[in-house]
Amino acid sequence: MSVQSASGRVTAPGGRAAGTTRRGQTVKFVVLLALAVLFLLPMYVLLVTGFKPFAEATAARAWSLPQTWSGEGWAAAWEALSSGLRNSLMVAVPSAVVSAVLGSMNGFVMARWRFPGADTVFTLFLFGMFIPYQAVMIPLQQMLVGAGLMGGLFPLILAHTVYGIPICTLIFRNYYASIPQTLIEAARVDGAGMLRTYASVVLPVSAPAFAVTLIWQFTSAWNDFLFAVFLTGPNSWPVTVQLNNVAGSMVVPYNQQMAAAVLASLPTLVVYLLLGRYFMRGLMAGALKG
């Protein structure tokens, strides 16, 4: 034990110092570093290739740094993706907001203002989170065509909003379950009805859960491809479809492809890097863990 606590490094939160030798630490660190390099390979390729001029984006110089750093790949990628980026933004933001609001209301009721059968309804909601969306796609498409709603961004906004309700409900329900019931009771004794309790007791403390759901919904709507190919046409393609078209075409040089992939991923990556804590919580909720 004395040896282990002497290695100054093992001061993790919670005092988990016991049982680790200095050599063990070094071995672990080296293994982690090796894995980190493997994880970074694709990111290296993306950035380095993206900065190469067209003439250098060849097989022979695949892994080398650019001899001249060039912005031509980025300019071309921006040209190819700008309308998709705008479409993605106009889909992801409203659908994130609406599903978060609905999720908050549902979560409150299912955690703190329950009705008979609430558990069954909740389970039925949760199943909606796991279904393969292929199982609703053909009818959804037929319905939207039948209603004359195909064409713009509406189908995609609708789909992301509706199919985002389950996870938002789950996140808010687990979050609200941690609000002390006595607080809710106190509001009731004071004569507050449901809406008033929700607005004055629950909503003011909901900011973290809103952050988690908004980030989660934004990310999954932004990264979606399946709904997009089934429900949108060329004028309303989001960035994932445009990226796939750029990369799927044999004539587009690699520097443009890689720059396009980075450009399409930038918004969600920035959100992740800035708000990683909330992003994590959303991931955990996806595993049904509060």
């Binding site: 980190a36 694709p42 994932t240 796939n244 980075v262 991923s265 990556l269 992740y272």
Partner: peptide, 25 residues
């Protein structure tokens, strides 16, 4: 058990989750 640079490692290993399957592809 906690290791030097843990937050950096965690952020790096989790980062691909923020990206679409299309970009990964």
């Amino acid at each position: 058990k906690g290791i030097r640079g843990e937050p950096v490692f965690r952020t790096l290993f989790l980062a691909p989750m923020a990206v679409s399957f299309i970009a990964t592809g």
